[in-house]
C-alpha cells in the first residue's frame, strides 16, 4: 500500500514538473526562441565563459529539456523495472479478492433469494400453517388433559385401595382384639366358675374320666410315633 502511495506521488511530481518546466525554462535554441527554451545545452552542468554546447551551458540558463526527458525516461524505466511485478501481484490479488467478493455476494444473493422464496411461500400458506399449529396445540392439549385425568383417576383408585386395605386391617385388628378380650374374659370366668364348683367328687370324676380315656390316648401316641 505504501509503495503504491509512493509511486502515485512520484508520478504527480513528474507531471507538475513537466507542466511547470516550459514556463520557467529558457535557452537551448536559436535567436529569441532559444532564449526561452533550452532543448539540449548543458546536459552535464554550468560553466562560465563557455559557448553553450551539449555538455555545458552558461549560468542563468535553465536545464535542457532533453535532460529532463532523459531523466523522465530513466524514472519510468525504474518504475516499470521494479514496480511492475508488485503492482501486477497486487492487482491480481485485488482481482481475486473482488472475484471472491462477487462470488460471495452472488451466493448471499442466492441464499437471500431462497429465503425470500421460502418466506413468500410461507406467507402464501400462513393461514394453513396457523391452522396446522393450532390443531397440533389442540391435539397436544387434549392428550395432556387425558393423561392428567388418567393419572388422577389412577391415583384416586390407589388411594381408595390403600384406604380400604387400611380400614380392613384396622377392622381385623379391632375384631381380633375384641375377640381375644372376649375369649379371655369368658375363659377366665369359666375357670373361676369351675374352681368354685370343684369338689373331691368332681376331682374323682375327672380322674376316672381321664383313666377311661388314657388307653386311647396312649394308643394314639404309639401309632403317631
Amino acid at each position: 500500500m505504501n509503495r503504491r502511495i509512493a509511486l502515485g506521488a512520484a508520478l504527480l511530481a513528474l507531471s507538475l514538473l513537466g507542466v511547470a518546466a516550459p514556463a520557467v525554462a529558457a535557452g537551448g535554441g536559436d535567436g529569441e526562441e532559444a532564449h526561452h527554451f533550452n532543448y539540449y545545452h548543458g546536459f552535464v552542468g554550468v560553466r562560465e565563459g563557455v559557448e553553450p554546447n551539449l555538455l555545458f551551458r552558461a549560468p542563468g540558463t535553465p536545464p535542457p529539456l532533453g535532460a529532463m526527458l532523459v531523466n523522465t525516461g530513466i524514472l519510468f524505466y525504474i518504475l516499470f523495472r521494479f514496480g511492475s511485478r508488485p503492482v501486477k501481484d497486487a492487482l491480481k490479488k485485488r482481482k481475486a479478492a473482488i472475484m471472491q467478493g462477487m462470488d460471495d455476494a452472488a451466493k448471499m444473493k442466492d441464499d437471500a433469494q431462497k429465503r425470500l422464496t421460502d418466506l413468500e411461500d410461507k406467507i402464501d400458506h400462513i393461514e394453513d400453517e396457523i391452522e396446522r399449529v393450532r390443531r397440533e396445540m389442540q391435539d397436544a392439549g387434549q392428550a395432556e388433559r387425558g393423561r392428567v385425568l388418567a393419572e388422577a383417576k389412577e391415583r384416586r383408585e390407589r388411594m381408595e385401595r390403600d384406604a380400604r386395605l387400611l380400614v380392613s386391617q384396622e377392622l381385623k385388628v379391632a375384631r381380633d382384639g375384641l375377640l381375644e378380650e372376649t375369649v379371655i374374659s369368658a375363659v377366665t370366668s369359666a375357670r373361676e366358675t369351675i374352681e368354685k364348683a370343684m369338689t373331691p367328687a368332681e376331682h374323682r370324676r375327672l380322674a376316672e374320666e381321664y383313666l377311661a380315656g388314657l388307653e386311647r390316648s396312649l394308643g394314639a401316641r404309639r401309632s403317631a410315633s
Binding site: V187, A190, R191, I194, M198, L206, Y210, S217, L218
Partner: peptide, 13 residues
C-alpha cells in the same frame, strides 16, 4: 398326656 381343666381351657382358648 394332659387331661387337666387348665389344659382344656387353654385348648378351648
Amino acid at each position: 398326656i394332659d387331661g387337666s381343666i387348665r389344659g382344656r381351657l387353654e385348648e378351648l382358648t
